[in-house]
Write a protein that binds this DNA or RNA. Structure first.
Lengths: 357, 357
DNA sequence: GGAGCTTGTGTGACCGGTCACATCCATGCC
DNA sequence: GGCATGGATGTGACCGGTCACACAAGCTCC
């Protein structure tokens, strides 16, 4: 079945009507019989305008359908109130949720939000430069290599804040940034699985922002640390090439073949879903034969069967905090809250349990 | 477990360095020993500039770290090349995918993209007005009531295009718009279920952009039509209050209690996931006892168990086409492609099957 | 050798707002 | 009555670019 859709592309402009230019404050001024400066005063709510004058101007604004030109305003006043988000992805849950937090915060502060999706093909420097030319600040979602390298390339004179993967101990990101402690979260999740009685825990990695080895991301580090603390030699991590369920399925097929695999930590819930599916196909029950824990707590995680145990992340909080950090650079009198955001949270559902072995 | 995160908010400005203003073309001109106009010519690749002069200017641009002020450019040239998307949601699959298509198209055409999330609380007219003040066009995602009413309120002189629910037969949306024929898609999906041997098909609705009755959306209409064509009186539709899995679960619990329910069409995949979960809890097997079909083909639909049969929608194509429609209004010499986009596609996986009855 | 064209470059006005300052007028006060 | 005060309004410059046009120098051509 392939049903074609429709498009309605009517030119919704009357036949005789000219696409006449938008009214400026001077047009309004003329219509109201005042100077353009008075119109400006009315627009900005300046107190020293007589009641009658104000009314006359407001009437003129109404009849002419005047809207203040934001471009001219920005140029003349030097106030931009806009930020652009640089991200390599907008649909994956972690990114989308961060973006949402960013948007909420920006909107609440009266900022407009631009979004620029980074692709490996385009010239990063050019992209950044044109995004920065807008005048406002830059926000970078640096969960992956593309985002991280974009962050590194932002010129020093451009206001910028980022949300990133937890940086290696003692190392600071190139710009003001916020992050969640997913290293510790991964450690705790792994420790929990060991405590359940599993001999070891396998890891299916997400791509990471740092290095090329898939074992280097903070989640992988936390997993490794938990194993080492328990005196277990970490097995070779899987994955690291993709974020989606298909990637998880591919890795899951391999893992399912190994009877020694009884516990799997996944870098995100999509991967976990794929792993779950592969285990199901291989006839291995979850959590009976294998425990699986995801990461991020995507909206559907609790509704698949078996319901996915996972680590909840406060992506929206991350977005909000990162925006506050940027705002602190943009407005000299704004003090970004120093609070650390709400952290991570291990949520146990059905996909993890005591091993049968 | 509650691990707090960190924020690194260092002021990455050296102690002695002034936050000195960005260089303008006149600064560059002075540094290169030419007039500002010559700098402008170099920036715009004007041919009539001597090789040596060009090099000198480019060197000055490099040393001063000059970036052309996009605001001033927009004001002076009258070219904006930016569009703002008005949407009530950014994370739900259909919205996110549409947004992605929009962004791709905008980016490819050299436009920057703004996003403004609509909430029931904020003043629509004010929001629209401030979004339109940017100068560029407006794109509205009108899948729901909020989006649809925003679309209706966009002033006639503001360039605008939308992606909407399929409008009622013969009716046109208030602005140039694109849509998928989900009415027909729902009809086909329902007909397929009937053909499998089900006596009737129940419907769990998504909220819709039109009217208040949950039966009025195009998907509901298609479902109803298929039943009527088969001489079956449509049962009362369920849902219509939410988009997410929890809403689906709530409706699924009710449906699970009714042994007469053997086939369920859901307004989206999230709802279907919730329904699946509720059926599972009630001990009714899918597709053995009940067939379930979703809508949208979200990324995880194929990886849940049982894999979800669903209707694939080309949201990205919708986004691209809507952008082309807007671009046609913004650039007088740009002719939007008249092609109808790729349509919907019923994808059968595991959650639908022949009834046991 | 000057008219006429092309090439390279500079000047002034303008886009649509804001800001600093000047002006006009009505008060209040001594 | 003279003067400081302050409210209401207007004027000119400016933000950082672009555009239209002027103009000088070099070249061709008759």
């Amino acid at each position: 079945m392939d049903v074609t859709g429709h498009t309605s592309s009517g030119n919704h402009r009357g036949p005789g009507q000219e696409p006449r230019k938008a009214a400026s404050i001077r047009d309004v001024a003329e219509a109201a019989g005042v100077s353009y400066q008075t119109v400006s005063r009315v627009l900005n709510g300046h107190p020293n305008v007589r009641e009658v004058t104000r009314n006359r101007v407001e009437a003129a604004i109404e009849t002419l359908g005047f809207r203040r030109n934001a471009t001219a305003f920005a140029l003349a006043s030097g106030v931009t109130r806009s930020v652009t988000v640089l991200t390599s992805n907008t649909t994956l849950y972690g990114y989308a949720a961060t973006l949402q937090g960013l948007e909420e915060a920006a909107s609440a502060a009266g900022y407009s939000l631009g979004v620029k999706v980074l692709t490996p093909e385009d010239d990063l420097d050019r992209t950044i430069s044109s995004a920065a030319a807008g005048g406002g600040g830059l926000m970078v979602i640096g969960f992956d290599r593309l985002g991280a390298s974009a962050l590194r390339r932002v010129p020093a004179d451009v206001p910028c804040a980022a949300v990133v993967e937890a940086p290696p101990h003692g190392r600071r990101p190139p710009r003001p940034a916020v992050w969640a402690d997913d290293r510790e979260a991964a450690r705790a999740a792994t420790a929990y699985l060991l405590q359940l009685g599993h001999q070891t825990v396998h890891y299916v990695a997400i791509p990471t922002s740092v290095g090329t080895r898939r074992s280097e991301g903070p989640r992988a580090q936390g997993w490794r640390k938990a194993l080492e603390e328990a005196g277990i030699t970490p097995p070779e991590p899987h994955g690291g090439k993709g974020w989606d369920a298909q990637a998880g399925y591919d890795e899951g097929e391999q893992l399912a073949r190994d009877p020694g695999v009884t516990a799997i930590l996944c870098g995100n819930d999509e991967l976990a879903l794929g792993v779950l599916r592969a285990l199901h196909h291989a006839g291995r029950s979850v959590p009976g034969d294998v425990s699986v824990i995801g990461f991020d707590d995507a909206p559907h995680a609790g509704f698949v069967t078996p319901a996915l145990s996972t680590v909840r992340m406060d992506f929206q909080g991350l977005g909000r905090d990162a925006f506050a950090l940027l705002r602190g650079q943009l407005e000299s009198d704004y003090q970004p809250p120093a609070r650390t955001f709400a952290g991570t949270d291990l949520v146990i559902r059905e996909s993890s349990g005591v091993t049968d072995v």
